[in-house]
């Protein structure tokens, strides 16, 4: 049960930080997303994100910092395996499922549904 609590707390905290950025800085949502992913790559790279994932599970992998962490993890493994080429292949390979899912589901949903007026 504790793992759910940790996931909730860490995930919630990462989102609350995002809200602070929205409320108190001029950062737009798009910039915040970019910042989260890059922060994930850096934190993953210097080895700080791994312990957070161990501790909080989905609380650390579901937020977009987790996406950045995934990229850095993929690169690290690929560089170990293929050398410099790994720097080019590792990130996208690790993120392939997420990006493909978003593109394909995005495409399908956009095909099927009609835009609606959210003002009514």
């Amino acid at each position: 049960m504790m793992e759910y609590l940790y996931a909730f707390l860490v995930g919630g905290l990462l989102c609350a930080i995002g809200q602070v950025l929205i409320d108190y800085t001029k950062l737009t949502p798009a910039r915040i997303l970019v910042a989260y992913v890059v922060a994930g790559v850096i934190l993953g790279g210097i080895g700080l994100y791994e312990p957070l994932v161990e501790f909080a599970g989905a609380g650390a992998t579901v937020p977009l910092t987790g996406f950045g962490y995934l990229l850095s993890k993929g690169v690290k493994e690929a560089v170990a395996e293929k050398g410099l080429l790994g720097a080019m292949t590792g990130g996208l390979t690790a993120a392939a499922a997420g990006i493909t899912a978003a593109v394909v589901f995005g495409f399908l949903v956009a095909l099927i549904f009609k835009p609606k007026d959210k003002s009514v």
């Binding site: 929205i22 949502p29 835009p115 609606k116 007026d117 959210k118 003002s119």
Partner: peptide, 18 residues
């Protein structure tokens, strides 16, 4: 029109934001 203006000046209508 709310929807045409929103599309042009801000974000897609279905985009979640505050």
């Amino acid at each position: 029109h709310f929807c045409s203006a929103e599309r042009q000046f801000r974000l897609p209508l279905e985009y979640g934001g505050q």
